[in-house]
Design a binder for these strands. Structure first.
Lengths: 216, 216
DNA sequence: TACTACTTCCTGAGCGATCAGTAAGTTATA
DNA sequence: TATAACTTACTGATCGCTCAGGAAGTAGTA
C-alpha cells in the first residue's frame, strides 16, 4: 500500500493535550460564548475524543475557568512591562506626549493581538461577570501608567482630570470599536480591520486624551 | 364556595398576548441571550402556554426579530426628536456647549431608560450582528446632531475633528460604562448605578468632547 | 333572538435532536 | 505490572417545535 491512510497514532502527551484543548476551548468560547460552545465541538477542534476535556478539566465550568485564567495571565505578561515602559518614558525628553503614545500604542496592540480576550470579556460582561469573580482579574497596569502620566501633567485637580473617569474613557475609546465592529462600525460603513482606520483611530485617541488632560 | 380558587380564565386578546410575549421575550433575551432564553421560560414569564409564542411568531428566530424591531423602532422615536432639538439649540445663545450638553444628556438618558436595548446590542455584537442585518438598524440621529454641531465649530478640518472618529468616541464613552458595569467598573470599585458617578460621567463626557472639538 | 358554521386563540402532550457528564474499557508508558 | 492517558458507549435532562383538539369569538341565517 503506497502511502495508505496512516492512523498515525500520536504519542501520549498530557501537557500537549491540555494545551490543544485549552486552545480549542478558548477559540470556541470566544467565538460562540459559553453556552453555544459544546464540549463535543471543543474536543473535535482539538482532535481528541469527546471525553478528554472533562478528563483533564473536570467539567465545562472548569475548562472555561482555565481558559480565563490563561488569558488573564497573558494580559499581565503583556501589560505590566508596558506600564513600566510608560512610566520610564515619562522621565525622558518626549515627556507626557511620548509616554501617552506608547501607552495607547501598546494597549491597542495587545487588544488587536488578542481578539479572543476582547470577546471573552464581552461575554463575561453580559453574563454579569459571574465566572470572572473567581479569577484574578484586576490588571492595574494601564491604570498605573495613566496615573503616573497624570501626575506629571499640571497638578491642578479637576473633574475632567479625574483619573477614574479618564481611565474609563481611555479603555472605552480603545475597546469599543473592537467590540462593535459588526454593529456600529459596520452600520457606519467602516471596516474595523482596515489599516488606515486603525491608524486614524490611534491618532484620534492619543490626541483626544492629550486634550482632555490639557497638557501644555 | 367562598372565593374558591378561581381558574380565572382570561378573556382572549391576541394583541395583549403578543405584547406580553414580546415583553417577556425582550426581558429574557436581554438578560440571558438568545440561546439561554428558552421558549418555555419566555412563555412562563408571559403567563401563557409554552406553545403560544411559536403560534404568534412562527419560531424562536421570528420572536427574536420581532423583539429587535420593536426596540429599534423605539430608539428612533426617542433619538430623532432629540436630534432635532440639538440642531435647534445650536442656533440659540447657549450655542455649541448647550447643544452638546443636550445631546449627551438625551443620549445617556435613553441608554439609562432602556438597559434591555444596551444588552441586546451587546449580544448582537458578539454574534456578529447576524440577526441585526435583517432589521432597520441605522439610526443616524446622533450622527446628524453631532455633524451639525461640528459644522458650527471652527471650520478647520482636522484629523481629530473627523466626524466618524468623534462619533465613535462619543458613543464609546456613553455606551461602554453601561456594558462593562460588571467587569471594568466593578473591578475599579465603582457602582455604575450610583447617581454621583452617573452625573460625574456625564460632565466628564461633555467636557471631553468640547475639548476634543476645541471650540472657542 | 336562536341556532349553525366557521375562524381565531390557546393549551397540553410528546417527538426528535442535542448536550454535559459518567462509567467502563483499551492502550501506551514508566 | 501499575498507572496515567485516552476512547467508546451510554444516560438523563433540556430544548425547539409540532400536533390534535378544545374554548372563545364572529358571521350568516332564520
Amino acid at each position: 500500500m503506497p502511502a495508505a491512510a496512516q492512523p498515525r497514532r500520536r504519542r501520549r502527551d498530557a501537557q500537549r493535550s491540555r494545551r490543544v484543548i485549552l486552545d480549542a476551548a478558548e477559540a470556541l468560547f470566544a467565538q460562540r460564548g459559553y453556552d453555544a460552545a459544546s464540549m463535543g465541538a471543543i474536543a473535535s477542534r482539538a482532535r481528541v475524543s469527546s471525553a478528554l476535556p472533562a478528563y483533564f478539566f473536570a467539567d465545562k465550568e472548569g475548562l472555561y475557568r482555565a481558559v480565563l485564567e490563561r488569558c488573564f495571565a497573558e494580559r499581565e505578561e503583556r501589560l505590566e512591562p508596558l506600564a513600566d515602559e510608560v512610566v520610564a518614558a515619562l522621565g525622558r525628553e518626549g515627556g507626557l506626549a511620548g509616554a501617552l503614545r506608547h501607552l495607547i500604542d501598546g494597549y491597542l496592540g495587545f487588544l488587536a493581538d488578542r481578539p479572543d480576550f476582547v470577546r471573552l470579556i464581552g461575554w463575561e460582561a453580559l453574563h454579569g461577570a459571574r465566572r470572572l469573580r473567581a479569577t484574578p482579574r484586576h490588571s492595574a497596569a494601564v491604570e498605573r501608567a495613566l496615573r503616573a502620566a497624570l501626575a506629571v501633567g499640571s497638578s491642578a485637580p479637576s473633574p475632567r482630570r479625574d483619573p477614574d473617569q479618564l481611565l474609563i474613557s481611555l479603555v472605552a475609546m480603545c475597546f469599543f470599536p473592537l467590540e462593535h465592529a459588526d454593529t456600529m462600525l459596520s452600520a457606519m460603513g467602516i471596516d474595523a480591520g482596515d489599516a488606515t482606520f486603525v491608524q486614524a483611530r490611534k491618532e484620534h485617541i492619543i490626541d483626544a486624551l492629550m486634550r482632555i488632560i490639557d497638557a501644555g
